[in-house]
Amino acid sequence: MNRVIVVGSANTDLAVRVENLPSKGETVMGRDLTFFFGGKGANQALAALRCGADVLLIARIGTDHYGQRLARHLKDSGLPAAGIAADDEHPAGLAFILVEPGGDNQITVVPGSNQHLSPADVRACADWFAPGSVLLTQLEIPMDTAAAALELAKSCAMTTILNPAPFAPLSRSILAATDILTPNQGEAVALCDSAEDIMQDPSQHLAPVLDLGPKEIIITLGQDGALRVTRKRQLHIPASPVRAVDTVGAGDAFNGALAAAMAHGCSMQNALRLAGAAGALTAATPGAQEALPSQEDIEVLAGVRFGSQGHGRDPG
């Protein structure tokens, strides 16, 4: 079974290009206002879908103008309607994004209906949870909903992935139900609650987190690739040689492709190569969901296929 269940947010993104990101109190002139479909949950679900996985997105979407367009788009993209709850009481989520020429960005999210996705919404889709599948969630939804999804998936012998973004302190119960954590570098520092440069010895700094449950922590490093940290070792995965023009959605593409690769039965080394290629290709194209690459393009850049086991023992 190559099923991926994504529990998370779905938004409409309003993106503006600026010459420089504003500092505190500064006003900058923008150009090229563009509307994109986004939200970390929806982005990751569609990324996994494009990688050939059987995907269910569990989300709550308002029925206002933005929400109707968003729900229709997700269904037209191939996601089952079964996981998408219509919310008549709260507006759909919106994200306001500033992007500078180098691709760096600032994002403000107004969660709307995403903030009302509940554990009951997750339990309503319990029939989709099955051994061998992968659960992927993030923190643009209530923490108790993410926790309920992780715990249900764990009880069903699924692999669980938590992308701790935007960062919030994680409880022991959430960490115990998480197999793989995928923070970026800033989130990894927050996980350690340390002012030190944890990248000098990430295995040591992250050991207390790994002791609470996760089997591994994958730190995404942007143009520097990714770092896999386990209790025994750490492994750097170089970035794919692609020029970034817009990093919006690149982390989501990484996570979605990683989940899809795990669902396809890839070795972790090959899964990370595929995930890195997905993130790089997304960063090379403006937009979020519009920029998500195809399975074929990811496999060409990564040099491996989804389902590849690799050679020899996957180092843990």
Rank of each mutant, 00 (worst) to 15 (best):
E299Q: 07
G251C: 03
I174P: 07
L56F: 05
V242W: 09
L274F: 07
W128I: 04
P241N: 08
N270R: 14
A42E: 03
F167G: 06
F37Y: 14
A59Q: 05
R31V: 04
Q295G: 08
N255A: 14
I5Q: 08
A126F: 02
S9H: 08
V6P: 04
Q44A: 03
V55N: 08
V245D: 15
L301Y: 10
E290C: 05
F96E: 10
G303F: 13
M199R: 03
F37N: 14
V109Q: 14
G310F: 03
G316D: 15
A82D: 15
S194R: 10
G83C: 05
A149R: 09
F306N: 06
D104L: 02
P119T: 08
V7R: 10
H311E: 15
D246T: 02
F96W: 11
R31M: 09
D193N: 15
D87C: 15
V7W: 07
N20G: 00
A157I: 03
P91V: 03
A48N: 04
I58D: 08
M268P: 07
R231W: 07
A59Y: 05
G25R: 04
A261W: 01
A10L: 01
A47C: 11
C192Y: 00
S194I: 00
L152N: 01
G276S: 12
K215E: 15
A130Q: 13
T220I: 05
E299G: 08
L206E: 02
V18L: 04
A176S: 11
P101I: 00
L98T: 05
L206V: 09
Q295P: 05
